[in-house]
Design a protein around this nucleic acid. Structure first.
Lengths: 105, 105
DNA sequence: GGTTACTGCAACCACATAGTTGCATTAACC
DNA sequence: GGTTAATGCAACTATGTGGTTGCAGTAACC
């Protein structure tokens, strides 16, 4: 994953309400209306958040009867985690090299 | 790491300019003024971004002469990546269970 | 087939924040 | 010790966005 596809994912994850939606979905698929019943925001606000989450493939939607259920996708998280880990490891390596030089070894 | 400390880190990572700062710092420590010379924003804008990054421990600052140099910290990224991976794995497990049930096994 | 429950769209508000300019301050360096 | 190059602080602007209300549309259910 390149960092241009990465940044929108982080932006999506950088909001408390969206996390509460993700956590709620983690306990089971739900529609925007159903989510609105247990979260302290309106259905429309939730619908917007779900659109953001769907744009970056953190959730997917499935029609069930007359409702549109959302499902959380762990795969995107895992991939993002891998990218982060790679970058972090690189920077840590560089930092370690600097420290070694600073200590005159 | 709990998700309340996690969200601000994602918010910090969800901005293109901050990423360009992080990437620039990845090539070597630099001051806000030095970064301003090679990025298309003012020093003050960069200073604000650095404050945000420092708040969530993605960078640290070191005084060198009269300048304040910033250094990127991979450790925070690695830790964040681990948290993400744990959560993603859980959700994937749940999804797999649902699929198994759906397939009637 | 009529009701009703759900989704979709649009306009609007308030606040956060990315960005700017301008000036004050401070402390290296010669 | 004076100059100068760095950081720090403050005010301001503009845009993005999280949130709301209200209404229109649509399709499932009885």
């Amino acid at each position: 994953m390149t960092t241009n596809t990465l940044v929108p994912v982080f932006a999506a994850l950088g909001d408390e309400t969206r996390w509460s939606i993700l956590v709620a979905l983690g306990e089971g698929d739900a529609s925007a209306s159903a989510l609105a019943e247990r979260l302290p925001v309106t259905r429309q606000a939730i619908a917007k958040h779900l659109a953001v989450l769907q744009d970056v493939q953190l959730v997917e939607s499935v029609r069930v009867g007359r409702e549109l259920r959302y499902r959380v996708l762990g795969a995107q998280l895992s991939e993002t985690a891998r990218s982060l880990d790679r970058i972090g490891a690189e920077w840590e390596r560089r930092l370690a090299a600097i420290k070694r030089i600073a200590e005159g070894l």
